[in-house]
Amino acid sequence: MKAIEADNLSKRYAKTEALCGVSFEVEEGELFGLIGPDGAGKTTLFRLLTTLIVPDGGTASVGGLDIVRDYRRIRELVGYMPGRFSLYPDLSVEENLAFFAALFGVRIADNYELIAPIYRQIEPFRRRRAGKLSGGMKQKLALCCALVHRPSILFLDEPTTGVDAVSRSEFWDMLFELKARGISMLVSTPYMDEARRCDRIALIDRGSLLGIDTPGGILHRFREPLYALSGDDMYGLLIEARRASGIRKCYPFGAAHHLIATSDFDPTAFVRELAARGFQKVEIVPTEPGIEDVFIQLMHHE
């Protein structure tokens, strides 16, 4: 049995098509990443699979249960951590956890060993109001609350958005521990570096999946030559590169610009040309594509 199966799922809000025919499968015990920009439809997909909304078309099952017909049983089976912090800010850490445990008919002690590695980090603050926690601690509490009833499938919608880099990395370590315990996970993130830590990822944009593969497999899909271009006048270079022939695509990427070139592109000739036009310290080096490059490439292929 698959943990999650979605077949041609569609959802529209008034005039906007939030999801158009999304199909994918998540294996049991798999850590599956959903990568896409804001407004791609990630949250809609989460809300569909956690039975908060019903689809306009297509079917899906979670833990083998239909999301429309068996929604009651799914709710006992899954844990959901929404993108926005949505615990009670005026209840303490301990009270929030006890409350959500009680709603599922369990006590904190019943599944303590599951949440212990995470909960121990916030336990010193257990009497503090949840609203007064730092971003990283809020997120750990939210994860505890989503786990307290020992779900077999965990839905994490942008769990690390707005959290510092160290906490983000710690958070992913925790997800690995949960994965080791056999919990299947669907995680969405706008951060490409996090995508690399998933078993498989799906790229999503404007309501459609652009591709599903392992992070390595996704990178192999990038076959065109990729260069990093840098120099003194970065903006001027961007304009020039976009105008030049033999360059498919040029976009800012961190400190450099990434160029997707055609196979007959000659980088040395291009640098000479730029120098002749008065650009200084121009450098161009071949570079390895990241998931972001794959994403940008796929996005513009449509």
């Binding site: 956690t50 039975t51 908060l52 009651r72 709710r75 006992e76 899954v78 959901y80 929404p82 926005r84 912090f85 949505s86 615990l87 009670y88 800010p89 959500f100 709603l103 599922f104 008919g105 609350c145």
Partner: peptide, 13 residues
């Protein structure tokens, strides 16, 4: 508005 209702809605209450 606080979104807490979402968290309640995914429980079997």
């Amino acid at each position: 508005e606080a979104g807490t209702i979402e968290q309640i809605n995914v429980t079997p209450v």
